[in-house]
Each structure stands twice: as C-alpha cells, then as structure tokens.
C-alpha cells in the first residue's frame, strides 16, 4: 500500500458516498445516469469475486464489500425507491456498445485464460468506459448539479491517483500491470474535459454548464 493508492481508494469511496447522499438527501436521481451505475455494479461484481477465494488484507476485503454494497444501494435507490425521478429520456447511451467490446477485448488481451482472470480483465476494461453514459447524460442535459460534479471529480481523481500509484509501484517494487495501466490511462483521459470544466467553473462557484 502507498499514499497514492490509499488516496485513490478514499477518493473512490468519497465519490460513492457523495452519490448516495445526493440521491438520498434530494430524494432524486435527476442528472445521474442509471446506466453508468449498472456498469459500475458489473465492474465490482466481476472484479471482486476473489473476495471468497483470495484473502489479501482486511482493508482489501472490507473495501470490496463496501463498494459492492454501496453500488447495490445506489441501484436500489435509482431503480426502485426514487424510480420516478430517473431521467430515462436523457440516459439513453447504448451500454451494449461498451459491454460487448470489453468482453471481446478481455478474451483477446489478458494475463491468463482462466475464468477469474478473464472476468478481472473484463472488469478493468469496463471500468475505463463505465462513466461514458454519465458524461453523455451531462452533455445531453448541458449541465450538472454541483454535487454531481463533485461526485465526478472524486471518481475521476481516484483512477488518476492510481496512475501515480502504478508509477510508484514500478519504481519501488518494479511491479506493473500493463492492462490496468492502459485502461487507467483511458479512464482518466475521459475525465479530462470534465476536470477542465470543474476547475475553471465549479470551483469558482459557477454551475457546470457545458458549452451548448
């Protein structure tokens, strides 16, 4: 464990908590893409299957359970409790265009052709594009509530901090995983234009308005 990875995990946890609080407090999931949340749930379920087979550390196991539980709770709030506030019209990204390529790529490029490893690889590829429906929704509505932009900033920062973690681990432990690094770079790049808008607008108290 290093400071970058810890900061990344905490940023990830913060993002998930911000989202849950936003939906719970405002009793609305307006502006949130249910499709992205479905993809994140798939990411956690396919990646954290090793929860029952491999024990890494108490921290690792607890965080996996928290992420799976929080994503389940978010889906429940969005698709059951506050279903009426779900923005079906704007949340129209075709997630099969993300799922199918990730499955194919995981079958072609992986470390080991075993079920667990293919699922882990699929999960890594899927996570890198899972935010697209959310960014698509924000671009369609042209704006985002500031709480939603804080959520996106924390979520984007988590994988950016992981990039620093991978640099550190390569230098300190000569450990690297090209699949995770490649996907992490793609994932972080997808947030770049959002990061720009967040820093130039939201931090100045303005609403996140995408140029029409």
């Amino acid at each position: 464990m290093n400071i970058f990875r810890l900061a990344g995990d905490l940023s990830h946890l913060l993002a998930i908590i911000i989202l849950l609080l936003k939906i719970w407090k405002t009793r609305s999931c307006a502006g949130i893409s249910g499709k992205s949340q479905v993809l994140f749930a798939i990411v956690y379920l396919t990646r954290y299957l090793d929860l029952f087979t491999t024990y890494i550390s108490l921290y690792n196991s607890i965080m996996k359970i928290v992420f799976i539980a929080a994503s389940g709770a978010t889906l429940y709030l969005m698709y059951v409790k506050f279903k009426a506030t779900y923005d079906h019209n704007h949340d129209s990204f075709r997630i099969e265009f993300l799922l199918i390529p990730c499955v194919i790529l995981a079958l072609i490029i992986n470390h080991d052709f075993t079920v667990m490893e293919i699922l882990w690889t699929f999960s890594i590829y899927l996570e890198s594009v899972a935010i697209l429906p959310q960014l698509f929704l924000v671009s369609k509505t042209g704006e985002a509530e500031s709480i939603t932009s804080h959520y996106l900033f924390a979520l984007g920062s988590y994988r950016a901090l992981y990039l620093l973690n991978w640099i550190y681990r390569y230098m300190a432990e000569s450990h690297y995983d090209l699949i995770a690094i490649f996907a992490g770079v793609v994932q972080t790049i997808l947030y770049c234009d959002f990061f720009y808008l967040y820093i130039t607008k939201v931090l100045k108290g303005k609403k996140l308005q995408l140029p029409a």
């Binding site: 990875r5 995990d9 990830h12 990646r47 090793d50 491999t54 890494i56 690792n60 965080m63 996996k64 992420f67 470390h111 080991d112 882990w120 992981y162 973690n165 450990h175 690297y176 995983d177 090209l178 995770a180």
Partner: peptide, 10 residues
Amino acid sequence: GDEFAKHDEL
C-alpha cells in the same frame, strides 16, 4: 510478462 500471483489492488 508481468505475471504475478494475484491482483492486490481494488
């Protein structure tokens, strides 16, 4: 390659 026993990151 970069084989290693298990994925220790979240």
